[in-house]
Amino acid sequence: MGKIKFAVVVFPGTNCDMDCHYVVKEVLGEDADYVWHTQEDLSPYHCIILPGGFSYGDYLRTGAIAKLSPVMESVRKEAEKGKLVIGICNGFQILVEAGLLPGALLKNTKLRFLCKFVYLRLDNNDTPFTHLYKKGEVLRMPIAHFEGRYFAPPEVLDTLERNGQVVLRYSSSEGELVEGVNPNGSLNFIAGIVNEKRNVFGLMPHPERCSEKILSSDDGYRIFKSMAEWARTHLKEL
């Protein structure tokens, strides 16, 4: 198969679109197109990225309006077909609002916007997004959000944990889940989860901001690389 085709969805107010596009095209060497939020057909793509930003100005709960836009119907459709969908930061919030992932993202416990590097423990490497990592590996990635505190009712959390759907957790540099390492108060230290089918991934940290050595960490690169490799072996030529 030739190059893997990524769609980078742009809502009014998305602002990490250029960064995701750059990483896919220039760093990963695959294909990427910007896709405007009015687009109704995403079938020509293997992978769909919902980048960070403040879709529709976040005038409501973050992501609450974006979920109503036409493109989200096609995201849902492609996800059902088994295509890969990744939502980063605001993209994660949109996936949650749209019901493609369970739970909710609330304001950080400190009620402040936070932009900084954090440590993450990779708890599941058996997904299309993380198969190039080792289980238990500690990663260093930046966060930049106001609303990243993962919340879900106990029964939903139980299901997530039982199914191994929790992929990333905030941790210490040694991978421990201890006091002081959870920047936003997320339940179970959750930083990223997948759906049951493992083809929809939402995470608060920004892998596109740490995919090159010069940016002080390239720990995010293998997420994009994993997606491309998985797509190459598991998805059909378009």
């Binding site: 602002n15 960070g52 403040f54 005038y59």
Partner: peptide, 14 residues
């Protein structure tokens, strides 16, 4: 009805 609530996220202007 909802007002533009609370403190929202991110660097809006990118």
């Amino acid at each position: 009805f909802l007002t533009q609530a609370g403190f929202a996220v991110h660097n809006c202007i990118g």
